[in-house]
Design a binder for these strands. Sequence first.
DNA 1: CGTCTAGTTGAATTCCGTCAAAGCGGGTGG
DNA 2: CCACCCGCTTTGACGGAATTCAACTAGACG
Lengths: 238, 238
Amino acid sequence: MDGNITAGSGTFCDACTVRNRAICSDLTRDELGALNSIGRQRKLRAGEQLIWEGDEAVLVANVVEGLLKLSSSTSDGREQILGIAFPADFLGRPFGGSTPYGVEALTDAQVCVFQRKDFDRFAKEHPRLEHKLLERTLAELDQTRKWMLLLGRLNAEQKLASFLLQAADRASESGFFAGDGTSFDLQLSRQQIADILGLTIETVSRQMTKMKSQGLIDLPSRRTVTILDRSALEDRAE
Amino acid sequence: MDGNITAGSGTFCDACTVRNRAICSDLTRDELGALNSIGRQRKLRAGEQLIWEGDEAVLVANVVEGLLKLSSSTSDGREQILGIAFPADFLGRPFGGSTPYGVEALTDAQVCVFQRKDFDRFAKEHPRLEHKLLERTLAELDQTRKWMLLLGRLNAEQKLASFLLQAADRASESGFFAGDGTSFDLQLSRQQIADILGLTIETVSRQMTKMKSQGLIDLPSRRTVTILDRSALEDRAE
DNA sequence: CGTCTAGTTGAATTCCGTCAAAGCGGGTGG
DNA sequence: CCACCCGCTTTGACGGAATTCAACTAGACG
């Protein structure tokens, strides 16, 4: 259980690939050192759970590498994905009681974890960090609200079109299999897409083949999507 | 257009009814005075718009009295309510570009507004205020995510049952027409409930009469709800 | 070459939205 | 005081979109 945890060696921040984008980006060398000493790097395998839904919030983390999902389930087992965490995103619930959602790695991932108590203390003493965290949380809230409109008011076609456009943007900006910016790897199964959009796997599949047959997209392989007619896709997104 | 704006007189915080619950609650007298000097009280009529969707974020506010909705619309005019703001809640998007949702008063309301630039500056200089704002934003994010599960994965009956239970809780804790805690005033039209739950007005109506006929609730008047069988309602909520 | 999982396709069903009409209640003016 | 009107709500009939259940297919991997 400890095999995938590396003790904070005092140097890992220097090598951190998301250092300039994560909430730590405004810290001085000394502050970074202090934060370093309370954090640990941890590797996660795809499918591994970092935080369980409803658990008392004992840890928070920065995503260094990979994709993670935040999700919650109904009592009868249907799942809704509440957000996707990308590298440099922050995870967990500081200053809070329990985490009302689970966090699980979608791909192999690397995170920089902190005991919540340690992090809370550190944050309170470092307003610039708190400020970064606040900005990030506000942005996340905006994002989440946008998603609510999708869930509440769009039909399956609109949901999928919006999703593909957003995925394409994310893919090109973070360089995932970017190619020419129109072809990209989804990194998500049909089931996961369905869980994001509040649909079933069959509906997702049907909509994708429909879009393919209409020449809006191509599906060269299971998880690869090529956008052939972006503006038509935008028309359907709303 | 100015008739409903009162200049900051230097004393209104003292009389503020939400002073101990709003984000200002940790400030010293001096700090409160300073904040006071950049804020203005404003009264809103039910239906009046405080912030327009997509506008550049020029103001932020504390709710002093009344209820407001945050909402967004699809291009074909269907609306989704993204959140309800209660007294002591914070409104608007500090440190940001545009507000991606509109804010409108549901009841007559009173808010304490700030120019965003003034507020941003003040906040940056007062970490305790930022901390409060952060805690509030995190709580709001949790709330919003819970709502996403409802929108994405619950059916009409489950949505309505969840909504009524939550409304009952809110009503009793904030003392709205609390009565014995089971009977309360909704303050929302059927259309607004539909916009919250991602349903149509007819579906909301049908579900309510169904619950009434099953003895779960009573509907003594248009906007009053009495919960007769809470546990049965909880069973249906998920 | 067989097995296993993820994805696709099809048919039946159900739930919710749409359209239309009727009911209710509160306010206004005769 | 009553008749009328207006907006909100309820109710009904219908259709369509998405889910459900089930069979089938395509790759991946040993």
